[in-house]
Structures are given as structure tokens and as C-alpha cells.
């Protein structure tokens, strides 16, 4: 298995270089280093001299991808792309264009992101699995039909509607929790309720339908028929046999997204004023802070790759028939 993991990690290198290159090109198609300097220095009374000094100090005074003036290898290494990318692979994110330490900010902001993402995932998972099992239990009844209609309707509604609706109903009309905000320690709990509820409700439609499909695939298998033939009650069949086997695709899917929980939820964090990594990324895009954008895209790619490797490993753990080679 270790050889497999090592190989996958080596495969990851060109992927990360590619992602980094695409991010770089997309960013600089829209923004020039001069634009970035203006964004940092402000609009009023900025001289070209100040812009040039800023670029020199932040390493944006070189050619983007190819330095025709430098000889040999320098043509590639004495460029913004190379100099800004090299340290990323050592996870040294350096400083943002506004002068903040990115690594420090990420360490600070990943906890609020996790505080929302983790309970949303776990509560959502528990509800979706329970609901899917219930639908399965009552399959081909009015409960099954009504639930599917409800789930499709829930899937069709925009996530933004759940956020604004949740804030309006629970925060504004019922006065049960703060509409938005965040705090440290236990004080954070009252701020987490609403985004977690909204996150769970917004995700319940799609995940329950998916899990229902997984369960339906299992329900007609031979081992289920055998269990029923043995005289087991339907509840026992579902919980002891069907659930255990259907959990394989569910859990492996969950494992894949686990590392990405650190990255936060872009819209939810923004609307609820949660200082997580999602809002960090959005802010950086709005401020044209390439250093943060590049660091977050890189981090997201790394976490995604780790998630995929973990998924492969989890297959071998939950299904002994699977071998990594």
C-alpha cells in the first residue's frame, strides 16, 4: 500500500504544478501587477514611481512566465511564476500582498470553518441516512412518493434562499439565535446553530436522494432476500444488512470531502459573518491579492488529492475484496 500511496503522491506533483500554472494564468489575464499595486496603494494620488517600488518590493517586477533577458535556466527561474510558486511546494505561503503572513492567517481561520463544516457534515449525514432508510422502509407508499417530491423540491431551491430564509425566520421573526456573527470559545455556539441548520437543510435533499439510491441498489440483492427468508424482521434487514453494505459508498464519499472541510463554505461564511477560510478566499479575490488566491487554490488542490488517496485507502478498509496495486 505504501508504494501505491507514494506513487499517487508523485502523480500529484504535476497536477499541482498544472493547477498552479492555470491559477497563475487566469489571475494575470484579468489583473496586471500594476493593477495589484494600485489595489494595495489605493486609487487616489498614486504615482507610477510608487507602483514600481511596490512591485519591486513584492517581487512583481519581473516577467510573468518567461524572462527573455535572462540567459539559460534564468529565463524560466527569474520570473514571477517560478519565484512565487517554488515555496508553495514547501508549504511556505509567504506573505499576502497586503503584508500579512498567510500561513498564520490560515491557521487562525481554519477553526471557524471547521466549526461550521464538521457539525453540518455529521448532522447532515445522520439525518440524510435516517431519512433515506425511512423512505426505504416505506418504499412504494405515500411516504416514499411524498418524500421524493419533497427532496426534489429541496434540491431545486438555491442555497442562498435557505440562508436568507433561515436568517429571516429563525433570526429575525422568531428571535431564537443571532442573525449573523461569530465569537470565540463557547460563545461561538449560539452563532453556529443557524449556519449549521441552514447547511443541513440545504444539503438534505440531494444527499438523502443519493443515499436512497444506494439503499435501493442493495435492497434487491441476494443476501437481503436470504435474510428475509430466514424470517428476519424488515427493521433488522435494513439496519443490520442493508445499511452496513450501503455505507461503503457513503463513507468513502465522506472521506473524500473530509480534508476539504478546512477550506470552508464560501457563501455561508460570507452571509453569516464567519471568519473562516471561505470568506478569506472571497476577500482575497475581491482585493486581487494573488498571494492568498494562489495559496488557497494550492491548498485546496492538495487537500483534494489527499481526500482522493484517503478514499482509496478507505475502500480497502471497508471492503476486503479491494486491493491497492
Amino acid at each position: 500500500m505504501s508504494a501505491y500511496i507514494l506513487r499517487r503522491l508523485l502523480y500529484a506533483l504535476p497536477i499541482l504544478i498544472g493547477v498552479n500554472l492555470i491559477t497563475f494564468v487566469l489571475f494575470f489575464v484579468v489583473n496586471s501587477p500594476d493593477d495589484m499595486a494600485r489595489m494595495q496603494l489605493g486609487d487616489k494620488r498614486v504615482t507610477q514611481e510608487a507602483i514600481d517600488t511596490w512591485k519591486a518590493e513584492h517581487g512583481y517586477d519581473k516577467p510573468l512566465l518567461y524572462n527573455a533577458e535572462a540567459g539559460g535556466l534564468g529565463a524560466l527561474t527569474e520570473t514571477i511564476f517560478f519565484e512565487k510558486s517554488l515555496k508553495l511546494f514547501a508549504f511556505d505561503f509567504g506573505q499576502s500582498d497586503s503584508g500579512r503572513n498567510i500561513g498564520y492567517d490560515i491557521r487562525q481561520r481554519m477553526w471557524p470553518s471547521l466549526a461550521i463544516a464538521l457539525p453540518t457534515l455529521l448532522v447532515g449525514l445522520a439525518i440524510a441516512i435516517s431519512y433515506a432508510l425511512m423512505i426505504l422502509f416505506f418504499r412504494a407508499t405515500y411516504i416514499d412518493f411524498g418524500s421524493v417530491v419533497l427532496l426534489v423540491a429541496m434540491m431545486s431551491i438555491s442555497g442562498l434562499f435557505y440562508i436568507i430564509g433561515g436568517q429571516f425566520l429563525i433570526g429575525k421573526l422568531f428571535h431564537l439565535v443571532p442573525i449573523s456573527g461569530y465569537d470565540r470559545g463557547l460563545e461561538a455556539l449560539k452563532f453556529l446553530i443557524l449556519p449549521v441548520v441552514v447547511g443541513v437543510v440545504a444539503g438534505i435533499g440531494s444527499s438523502t436522494r443519493l443515499y436512497r439510491t444506494f439503499f435501493l441498489e442493495e435492497i434487491n440483492r441476494d443476501y437481503v432476500r436470504t435474510a428475509r427468508a430466514k424470517g428476519l424482521r424488515e427493521r433488522a434487514v435494513l439496519f443490520r444488512h442493508v445499511l452496513r453494505n450501503a455505507l461503503i459508498p457513503i463513507l468513502t464519499g465522506v472521506v473524500a470531502v473530509l480534508p476539504l472541510l478546512f477550506m470552508g463554505a464560501l457563501i455561508i461564511e460570507s452571509f453569516f459573518g464567519v471568519p473562516g477560510l471561505g470568506s478569506y478566499t472571497i476577500d482575497a479575490i475581491n482585493r486581487q491579492d494573488f498571494s492568498i488566491v494562489r495559496a488557497m487554490v494550492f491548498l485546496g488542490s492538495v487537500l483534494y488529492i489527499i481526500g482522493l488517496i484517503m478514499t482509496d485507502i478507505s475502500y480497502t478498509l471497508v471492503d476486503p475484496r479491494v486491493r491497492l496495486s
Binding site: I164, Q167, F168, G181, G273
Partner: peptide, 16 residues
């Protein structure tokens, strides 16, 4: 001073 990026929660919290 709290960070309020969106105008709707800002307005509703003012009214409250």
C-alpha cells in the same frame, strides 16, 4: 465594530 459583509443581516440587526 463587527464585520457585516452583507447588507441584509446588518439591517435586520440594526432593527433589532
Amino acid at each position: 465594530y463587527s464585520l457585516e459583509k452583507e447588507s441584509i443581516p446588518y439591517w435586520n440587526k440594526f432593527l433589532q
